[in-house]
């Protein structure tokens, strides 16, 4: 037994070391650049300090990007989660569910650049949507959905709704079906099962899905440039960071904006998780027996 234990101990070290290359890579390419950017954001042409941050918050052209981005990303996230929750619930055991998930994964896979180009054509003044609205007399003139707020908002729904749906679906299917079955046996209608069983159990998943959807929407970039009005109403914070880095070559300022971006995202995530703590915490699986 003691020799077996010693062999065991010898292999433990070697096997555990297999994690080292992966850890090293993430440390070097993720954590180190982040810390480097954090330190860099405090440096300016004349020494060290908060100059970049002061400049960001005292220049409306820069600081407004936070409000602009929130104004697009928050409503988009609410719509995405608001649509995804009932749809994921209704289709969680549907026979067409696998087909539906396969279709919904397409816009995620194609990515925001292609969605932006497609929406430019589809929503544009000559596009099929406006043509349909005019032919059916639902609208008397072409509605403007590109190169403004709505273009970006709709692109966030096209890419964000499937993401939220797939996330929530995986949380919903993780809930032990025994619990709602027990409720049904006691006479609870599907609606009451949802309110009293699923929803409380889903709160953690819902909070995570909301955070992830929001963080994705908040960092919107290609569609804000291609489909929005990047000089004005859709000048989001990513555009400001990109311009600082690649047009002004002001890497300290770009790092500061990236840190502010991360800070706002973190703040919203902490806020959501703080709200989530007010709700039920516990297992989503029923007692075995």
């Amino acid at each position: 037994m003691s020799s077996a234990a010693s062999i065991q101990r010898k292999t433990v070290d070697v096997t555990a070391l297999l994690v080292a290359p992966g850890v090293g890579l993430v440390l070097l390419l993720f954590l180190y650049p982040f810390l480097y950017g954090f330190l860099l954001s405090f440096s300016a042409h004349e020494g060290v300090g908060l100059r970049n941050y002061v400049k960001f918050f005292s220049t409306p052209f820069l600081s407004q990007t936070i409000a602009t981005t929130l104004w697009i990303s928050f409503p988009a996230t609410v719509v995405n989660i608001g649509l995804a929750l009932p749809i994921a619930f209704a289709t969680r055991r549907h026979r067409l569910q696998r087909l539906l998930t396969a279709i919904l994964v397409v816009p995620i896979t194609l990515g925001t650049v292609l969605i932006a180009e497609g929406l430019l054509l589809y929503l544009g003044p000559q596009g099929w949507l406006n043509r349909f609205l005019l032919v059916t007399h639902l609208s008397t003139s072409a509605i403007h959905l590109t190169h403004n707020y709505w273009g970006v908002f709709l692109s966030l729904v096209v890419s964000g709704f499937p993401f939220a749906y797939l996330l929530l679906l995986s949380y919903l299917t993780g809930i032990d079906p025994v619990l709602p079955q027990a409720a049904a046996t006691l006479g609870a209608s599907p609606w009451r099962q949802f309110i009293h069983i699923y929803l409380p159990l889903l709160v953690p998943g819902l909070a995570i899905a909301f955070c992830l959807s929001f963080v994705q929407a908040f960092s919107v970039f290609p569609s804000a440039v291609l489909l929005g009005a990047p000089a004005g109403p859709t000048r989001v914070i990513s555009i400001a960071a990109y311009q600082a880095a690649f047009e002004d070559y002001d890497y300290p300022m770009a790092s500061a904006i990236a840190m502010i971006m991360a800070g706002v995202q973190l703040l919203v995530v902490v806020l959501i998780l703080a709200i989530r703590v007010l709700f039920y915490r516990g297992p989503t699986v029923g007692p075995k027996g």
């Binding site: 993430v26 650049p33 950017g37 880095a245």
Partner: peptide
């Protein structure tokens, strides 16, 4: 450490990463 790069959006960590790579 392994979960973070999947949660933080690429645009957020991409700018410091690009700075280091430059």
């Amino acid at each position: 450490l392994f979960v973070l790069p999947l949660l933080v959006p690429p645009m957020t960590y991409g700018i410091p990463l690009a700075t280091v790579l430059y």
